[in-house]
Amino acid sequence: MDDLQNQDEKSSGRGSTRREFLTQITVAGAGLSFAPLIVNTETKVPGSQLSVIQPVNVTMVVNGTKQTLTVDSRVTLLDALRDKLMMPGTKKGCDHGQCGACTVLVNGRRINSCLTFAAMCEGDEITTIEGLAHGDGLHPMQAAFVKHDAFQCGYCTPGQICSAVGLVKEGHAKTDTEIRELMSGNICRCGAYQNILEAIKEVQAVKLI
Protein backbone atom coordinates (compact mmCIF):
# COMPACT_ATOMS: atom_id res chain seq x y z
CA MET A 1 0.00 0.00 0.00
CA ASP A 2 2.93 2.29 -0.35
CA ASP A 3 1.31 3.95 -3.26
CA LEU A 4 -1.70 5.17 -1.39
CA GLN A 5 0.64 6.46 1.24
CA ASN A 6 2.90 8.18 -1.21
CA GLN A 7 0.03 9.72 -2.97
CA ASP A 8 -1.18 11.30 0.16
CA GLU A 9 2.15 12.27 1.51
CA LYS A 10 2.46 14.28 -1.64
CA SER A 11 -0.75 16.04 -0.93
CA SER A 12 -0.16 16.63 2.70
CA GLY A 13 1.87 19.75 2.85
CA ARG A 14 5.42 18.62 2.90
CA GLY A 15 7.41 17.85 -0.16
CA SER A 16 5.75 17.90 -3.45
CA THR A 17 2.54 19.20 -4.77
CA ARG A 18 -1.17 18.72 -4.95
CA ARG A 19 -0.93 18.94 -8.67
CA GLU A 20 0.70 15.55 -9.00
CA PHE A 21 -2.17 14.00 -7.14
CA LEU A 22 -4.86 15.75 -9.02
CA THR A 23 -3.46 15.03 -12.42
CA GLN A 24 -3.32 11.34 -11.69
CA ILE A 25 -6.93 11.22 -12.60
CA THR A 26 -7.99 13.40 -15.43
CA VAL A 27 -11.16 15.26 -14.93
CA ALA A 28 -13.34 16.65 -17.62
CA GLY A 29 -11.71 19.88 -18.60
CA ALA A 30 -8.71 19.08 -16.42
CA GLY A 31 -6.59 21.87 -15.08
CA LEU A 32 -8.39 21.91 -11.74
CA SER A 33 -5.59 21.95 -9.34
CA PHE A 34 -4.48 23.57 -6.22
CA ALA A 35 -1.22 25.42 -6.37
CA PRO A 36 2.03 24.02 -5.05
CA LEU A 37 2.49 24.45 -1.38
CA ILE A 38 4.78 26.92 0.16
CA VAL A 39 7.03 24.96 2.40
CA ASN A 40 9.47 27.61 3.39
CA THR A 41 7.54 29.28 6.13
CA GLU A 42 10.23 31.77 6.82
CA THR A 43 9.26 33.58 3.68
CA LYS A 44 5.68 34.63 3.96
CA VAL A 45 2.92 33.41 6.17
CA PRO A 46 -0.32 33.37 4.21
CA GLY A 47 -2.56 36.20 5.16
CA SER A 48 -0.37 37.69 7.81
CA GLN A 49 1.01 40.35 5.53
CA LEU A 50 -2.47 41.73 5.23
CA SER A 51 -3.77 44.10 7.79
CA VAL A 52 -2.68 42.29 10.89
CA ILE A 53 -3.05 44.80 13.64
CA GLN A 54 -1.01 43.11 16.28
CA PRO A 55 1.74 40.93 14.84
CA VAL A 56 4.03 39.02 17.15
CA ASN A 57 7.35 37.41 16.36
CA VAL A 58 7.93 33.98 17.71
CA THR A 59 10.71 31.50 17.27
CA MET A 60 10.12 27.90 18.14
CA VAL A 61 11.63 24.58 17.26
CA VAL A 62 9.05 22.43 15.57
CA ASN A 63 10.03 18.80 15.16
CA GLY A 64 13.66 19.75 15.31
CA THR A 65 13.44 22.61 12.84
CA LYS A 66 13.73 26.18 13.98
CA GLN A 67 10.77 28.22 12.78
CA THR A 68 10.52 31.96 13.02
CA LEU A 69 7.05 33.27 12.44
CA THR A 70 5.36 36.60 12.47
CA VAL A 71 1.80 35.92 13.41
CA ASP A 72 -1.35 37.71 14.38
CA SER A 73 -1.22 37.59 18.18
CA ARG A 74 -4.52 35.69 18.11
CA VAL A 75 -3.13 32.69 16.29
CA THR A 76 -3.11 29.60 18.45
CA LEU A 77 -0.31 27.09 18.33
CA LEU A 78 -2.78 24.73 16.67
CA ASP A 79 -3.65 27.15 13.88
CA ALA A 80 -0.01 28.13 13.47
CA LEU A 81 0.83 24.49 12.88
CA ARG A 82 -2.11 23.77 10.61
CA ASP A 83 -2.51 26.98 8.67
CA LYS A 84 0.83 28.73 8.80
CA LEU A 85 3.31 25.87 8.87
CA MET A 86 0.94 23.70 6.86
CA MET A 87 1.39 20.76 9.15
CA PRO A 88 -2.17 19.51 9.39
CA GLY A 89 -1.27 16.34 11.27
CA THR A 90 -2.38 18.02 14.48
CA LYS A 91 -6.16 18.11 14.42
CA LYS A 92 -8.81 20.56 15.48
CA GLY A 93 -11.78 18.81 17.01
CA CYS A 94 -13.32 21.43 19.26
CA ASP A 95 -10.95 24.38 19.52
CA HIS A 96 -11.75 24.67 23.23
CA GLY A 97 -9.70 22.12 25.12
CA GLN A 98 -12.54 19.65 25.21
CA CYS A 99 -11.41 16.81 22.99
CA GLY A 100 -7.65 16.38 22.87
CA ALA A 101 -7.37 16.14 19.08
CA CYS A 102 -4.88 18.99 19.10
CA THR A 103 -2.51 17.41 21.62
CA VAL A 104 1.16 18.06 20.95
CA LEU A 105 4.25 17.85 23.13
CA VAL A 106 5.73 21.17 24.24
CA ASN A 107 9.13 20.72 25.82
CA GLY A 108 8.21 17.06 26.19
CA ARG A 109 4.88 17.60 27.93
CA ARG A 110 1.52 16.98 26.37
CA ILE A 111 -0.72 20.00 26.06
CA ASN A 112 -3.72 21.18 24.03
CA SER A 113 -2.41 23.37 21.24
CA CYS A 114 -5.82 24.98 20.70
CA LEU A 115 -5.62 26.72 24.07
CA THR A 116 -2.09 28.03 23.62
CA PHE A 117 -1.23 31.13 21.65
CA ALA A 118 1.63 30.59 19.26
CA ALA A 119 3.12 33.71 20.78
CA MET A 120 3.42 31.90 24.12
CA CYS A 121 5.76 29.33 22.59
CA GLU A 122 8.81 31.54 22.25
CA GLY A 123 11.85 29.30 22.55
CA ASP A 124 9.79 26.15 23.01
CA GLU A 125 10.37 22.77 21.47
CA ILE A 126 7.24 21.47 19.85
CA THR A 127 6.82 17.87 18.80
CA THR A 128 3.83 17.02 16.65
CA ILE A 129 2.68 13.77 15.15
CA GLU A 130 4.76 14.58 12.08
CA GLY A 131 7.88 14.73 14.19
CA LEU A 132 7.56 11.61 16.31
CA ALA A 133 9.15 9.18 13.94
CA HIS A 134 12.80 9.42 13.19
CA GLY A 135 13.64 8.62 9.62
CA ASP A 136 11.44 6.21 7.73
CA GLY A 137 10.45 4.01 10.61
CA LEU A 138 7.48 4.62 12.86
CA HIS A 139 7.74 5.70 16.46
CA PRO A 140 6.98 2.67 18.65
CA MET A 141 3.68 4.22 19.69
CA GLN A 142 2.69 4.76 16.08
CA ALA A 143 3.61 1.17 15.23
CA ALA A 144 1.63 -0.13 18.19
CA PHE A 145 -1.39 1.91 17.11
CA VAL A 146 -1.29 0.29 13.68
CA LYS A 147 -0.77 -3.17 15.09
CA HIS A 148 -3.64 -2.89 17.57
CA ASP A 149 -5.96 -1.06 15.19
CA ALA A 150 -6.17 1.78 17.68
CA PHE A 151 -8.24 4.06 15.45
CA GLN A 152 -10.93 4.09 12.84
CA CYS A 153 -11.37 7.42 11.11
CA GLY A 154 -7.97 8.54 12.33
CA TYR A 155 -8.99 12.05 13.24
CA CYS A 156 -8.33 11.78 16.96
CA THR A 157 -5.29 9.62 16.35
CA PRO A 158 -2.46 12.16 16.21
CA GLY A 159 -3.72 13.59 19.48
CA GLN A 160 -4.10 10.15 21.04
CA ILE A 161 -0.58 9.19 20.03
CA CYS A 162 1.05 12.39 21.26
CA SER A 163 -0.94 12.09 24.46
CA ALA A 164 0.09 8.46 24.88
CA VAL A 165 3.75 9.36 24.40
CA GLY A 166 3.34 12.07 27.02
CA LEU A 167 1.60 9.67 29.36
CA VAL A 168 4.35 7.09 29.17
CA LYS A 169 6.96 9.77 29.84
CA GLU A 170 5.03 11.10 32.83
CA GLY A 171 5.14 7.64 34.35
CA HIS A 172 2.03 7.90 36.52
CA ALA A 173 -0.04 5.24 34.84
CA LYS A 174 0.65 1.68 35.86
CA THR A 175 -2.70 -0.07 35.73
CA ASP A 176 -5.35 -0.21 33.00
CA THR A 177 -7.56 2.01 35.13
CA GLU A 178 -4.81 4.59 35.50
CA ILE A 179 -4.03 4.59 31.80
CA ARG A 180 -7.70 5.03 31.03
CA GLU A 181 -8.05 7.88 33.49
CA LEU A 182 -4.95 9.67 32.26
CA MET A 183 -5.92 9.25 28.61
CA SER A 184 -9.39 10.65 29.23
CA GLY A 185 -8.44 14.01 27.76
CA ASN A 186 -8.51 12.41 24.32
CA ILE A 187 -11.92 11.65 22.98
CA CYS A 188 -12.32 9.05 20.27
CA ARG A 189 -15.83 9.21 18.93
CA CYS A 190 -15.19 6.15 16.79
CA GLY A 191 -14.58 4.30 20.02
CA ALA A 192 -11.16 2.76 19.52
CA TYR A 193 -10.41 3.12 23.23
CA GLN A 194 -9.80 -0.54 23.99
CA ASN A 195 -7.28 -0.82 21.18
CA ILE A 196 -5.58 2.39 22.22
CA LEU A 197 -5.19 0.92 25.68
CA GLU A 198 -3.63 -2.23 24.24
CA ALA A 199 -1.21 -0.19 22.15
CA ILE A 200 -0.11 1.91 25.11
CA LYS A 201 0.29 -1.14 27.33
CA GLU A 202 2.48 -2.82 24.79
CA VAL A 203 4.75 0.17 24.39
CA GLN A 204 4.91 0.69 28.12
CA ALA A 205 5.59 -2.97 28.91
CA VAL A 206 8.59 -3.30 26.66
CA LYS A 207 9.86 0.14 27.61
CA LEU A 208 10.14 1.14 24.01
CA ILE A 209 10.14 4.81 24.89
Binding site: S12, G89, I129, E130, F145, F151, G154
Partner: peptide, 8 residues
Protein backbone atom coordinates in the same frame (compact mmCIF):
# COMPACT_ATOMS: atom_id res chain seq x y z
CA UNK B 1 -2.81 2.93 9.06
CA UNK B 2 0.56 4.41 8.40
CA UNK B 3 -0.97 7.59 7.01
CA UNK B 4 -3.24 7.95 9.97
CA UNK B 5 -0.60 7.44 12.64
CA UNK B 6 1.87 9.79 11.00
CA UNK B 7 -0.57 12.62 10.48
CA UNK B 8 -0.27 12.38 6.72
Amino acid sequence: GRLKVTGT
